[in-house]
Design a protein around this nucleic acid. Structure first.
Lengths: 238, 238
DNA sequence: GCAATATCTGCGGGTTCCCGCAAGACTTGA
DNA sequence: TCAAGTCTTGCGGGAACCCGCAGATATTGC
């Protein structure tokens, strides 16, 4: 039973290595990769079935790496180990988990005990383990804001990419007006109309404001936009 | 000679602690703080003059913490220790360094030797030490893109906040048309007109597209937007 | 089956954005 | 000092955005 660790930070990597060996004394080799790309390659060549994956990495982030790994071998067990519980990451992971796959999501701020427990649960017991804080985000409702539906989230991503209403309508096979309707819902939910300062109307361009708000609420983040950009190029570049 | 370490990741914190003790055997206490807010408080109460500061933190990021510390005691020596060399961070730091202050900027990916050297240079020799990779960004020109002027960067931030042209004109004491001129420059430099896919015209809303491009080029990042948002509220909320 | 609710769609118009054109204001250098 | 360049400002217009209104079309619950 080999384990692959994909993590770009050297300190965290050695820490993980030790934690894995301690939590899974019965395990065989522990392989390390320092970015998503190398992680994919390692997973392919060494055929590991157990992966600990960081999310935020330079060459290729954890979500993309996990997607290709799962595409090749959907029964791979992956434990995500991330700094943040951004809604964008949580959604990103949820979006790529294959039917019936086992995975876990633990925050780096968690205790070493929790990490070891998660390692055993996911890799040995084939149980899904989602950190409580992360779970809270998954089941919508984030802080005081009501949480977006999938439709709203998708249009948010398209707007954040910089697409026009017309382009979105085309991509989503909707009429122009429907796109604008969804946008209005989005503006409502994100609270884009709330103004800092009092007599300020017309201060905001709602579409860019929505992106700004989504970013600071962590509903979106840069890597989610980059992922969407790649998808866009793929579907447009045919 | 005491040293304050402000860093939210526990592993990195202990690593830094050891590195500081090893590099500066003559130093006294080594104090730790786990976020920017506590860092500010510690700097105030324990009156340290040497700080090692992470940039990306939850409660208050390193740039803001450094700003308040320097505001209170401009002769404090600060070594920034960051994961990334995003243009947004580099600009953010450069923007708050007081006249004549000594500081350093080292990447976490640097070797332990480089870190220790930087610690001695900044804290003992009062020399500014900027990582080579970071320096490359500071002196404009980023990859293939030409690098933005301050005027262009500022308008980019305002746009990313979601402000309308009119609002920006007011804030910056410019005419509407001038704002739009600067925007056009910005669009030009960011290469916003380049289209993925061939026959695609009118696919992009230039203003949101500019934000998307800036984010993926790391010219902007979420924390820069949040900082700008706070500044906005302050100046608008009077 | 039949309301009740939600979503999609078209129309119309007020606002904002994007930008070409051109005239003034400012810096820079020989 | 004058010329060349850069930055600012106004005007005008086509396109895109934001959105109220209202009818058409699902979807849901009873």
């Amino acid at each position: 039973m080999d384990v692959l660790i994909v993590e770009d930070d050297a300190l965290h990597r050695t820490f993980l290595n030790e934690a894995v060996r301690a939590a899974l004394p019965e395990c065989g080799q522990v392989i390390e990769a320092e970015n998503g790309l190398k992680g994919e390659a390692q997973a392919r060549t060494s055929r590991v079935e157990h992966v600990v994956m960081d999310l935020q990495m330079n060459e290729r982030n954890g979500i993309e790496a996990a997607r290709t790994i799962w595409r090749e071998r959907p029964d791979t067990k992956i434990l995500f180990w991330s700094n943040y519980s951004d809604e964008a990451y949580v959604r990103g992971v949820a979006r790529i988990v294959p039917e019936g796959a086992t995975y876990g999501y633990v925050l780096k701020s968690a205790s070493e005990e929790r990490l070891k427990l998660a390692l055993r649960s996911v890799f040995i017991e084939s149980q899904c383990v989602i950190d409580r804080e992360v779970r809270g985000i998954q089941q919508k409702s984030f802080g005081n804001s009501p949480g977006l539906t999938d439709a709203e989230y998708e249009i948010l991503v398209d707007v954040a990419l910089g697409l026009t209403d017309k382009a979105i309508a085309q991509r989503k096979h909707l009429s122009l007006r429907s796109v604008q309707n969804r946008l209005q819902q989005l503006y409502e939910k994100l609270g884009v109309y709330e103004t800092p300062g009092q007599g300020s109307e017309g201060w905001f361009n709602l579409r860019t404001r929505a992106v700004a708000v989504a970013l600071s609420r962590k509903v979106l983040n840069a890597s989610a936009i980059e992922r969407a950009e790649r998808d866009l190029r793929q579907s447009a570049g045919i």
